Simulated assay, not measured.
Amino acid sequence: MKNVLHILLFLIALQTDAQISDFKSIDFKKADLNALECDIKSLDNLPKLVEQLTLNLTTDVERFRAIYMWVSTNIANDYSLYNKNMYNRRRFKDKAQKLESWNKRFNKTLFNTLTEDKKTICTGYAYIIRELAKVANLDCRIVNGYGKVSTTIDQLDTPNHSWNVVKLNGKWYFCDATWASGIPDPETNFFTFNFNSGYFLTDPKLFAISHYPIDKKWLLLEDTDYSFEEFTESPLIYNNAYKHLQVHILPEKMHNIILKNQKIVFDYVLKSSLSANDVHFLIDDGFGSLKTKPTSISIKEQQLTLEHIFERTGFYDVHLYIKDDLISTYTFKVKSKI
């Protein structure tokens, strides 16, 4: 068991080493080990749980990391519960009394499922992160808003996601334990733990592509004019993007109309340098998918810039891969003239 834990710690260290720029001097191995070796497996006594998780940790960021790691590796995502909640919230969205009644019943169900079965949805993850952080004297808030998990985000008429912000050294940082914990199968509802460290203290510019808060102050962006429309038009990025990217720069939109032979630029800031052999597109032209190298690839330290030219008119789905990981999706309608 010890060997498995230390292998996991090594893989986690590879993920976290280059991404949390404000905490480069912090080694999270001790915090992660506290979380992974914690012998308390229930939520019956939060002070005792926090005491064990934060034992011998000297900084707030390490204490929060241990809490976050424990939640992300011990609480399962209940996709069927999420679907049931979203169905009824849409069903009662124009019936205030029925919606209030549903929310009260659901919150009780959600709390019982979290404490008894250690299963929950995003609101439960955000709640338990906040409560554990509060016990550790950390300022942590729940943020409600929209999470982009498909190309139909613009069809949402009600918020569908929750996450956290935490204040460390006087500055607010993002985290999303729901998406970090693993992936539920939408067909079987079977959940597999698969910790993704990229959702811990994520760069706001990357976070904003897939998260939009109801209260815009929690965008944490210098550009406070970033709108919900811009959010819905932005590219679709996947879970693995958070492992490899620090910032997504270009293209700014998912759906693009361009001219034949026009040069298209894809620009990213990486968490660690890559080889050109690690990068490829999977391009679907409606007749099949073809693994394709960009027209040009430039990697300078942690800056990845790709250029591509479409030589024929048509409609193309373009999927970016780094190694075997699907990173992002874009569409291009290529015309002979606009």
Rank of each mutant, 00 (worst) to 15 (best):
D278F: 05
I209T: 01
Y212E: 06
F195E: 10
L274Q: 06
S296Q: 11
T224C: 04
C175T: 13
I283Q: 00
L245G: 03
E233W: 00
S289Q: 14
N239M: 08
I264V: 15
K216G: 01
S289R: 14
P159S: 03
H211T: 01
F228Y: 13
A180M: 01
D176E: 11
T295P: 10
N164I: 05
H211M: 11
S181F: 04
S227Y: 01
K253N: 14
F266Q: 02
N239E: 13
F195D: 00
G286D: 08
N261A: 13
K271H: 13
S227D: 00
L236D: 06
I258L: 08
T192R: 12
P294A: 11
Q246V: 13
L221Q: 12
S296V: 03
I214E: 15
N164P: 11
P235Y: 04
E187C: 10
D185T: 07
Y212G: 03
F200P: 07
S275M: 15
I249G: 07
T295N: 13
F193N: 00
I258M: 11
F200E: 04
K167N: 12
F207S: 01
K205P: 08
P204E: 09
K263N: 15
H255K: 15
K271P: 04
L168M: 08
G182V: 05
I283G: 07
N164C: 03
F287S: 14
N240Y: 07
L274N: 05
A177N: 09
P251S: 02
F195V: 09
V269G: 08
I297L: 07
Y238M: 10
K243T: 14
P184I: 00
T232N: 10
E252K: 12
F190D: 15
I258Y: 06
L201S: 00
I183A: 00
L270W: 07
L270R: 01
S197H: 07
I297K: 07
F174V: 02
F266K: 07
K167V: 09
I237F: 06
N189A: 09
S162I: 12
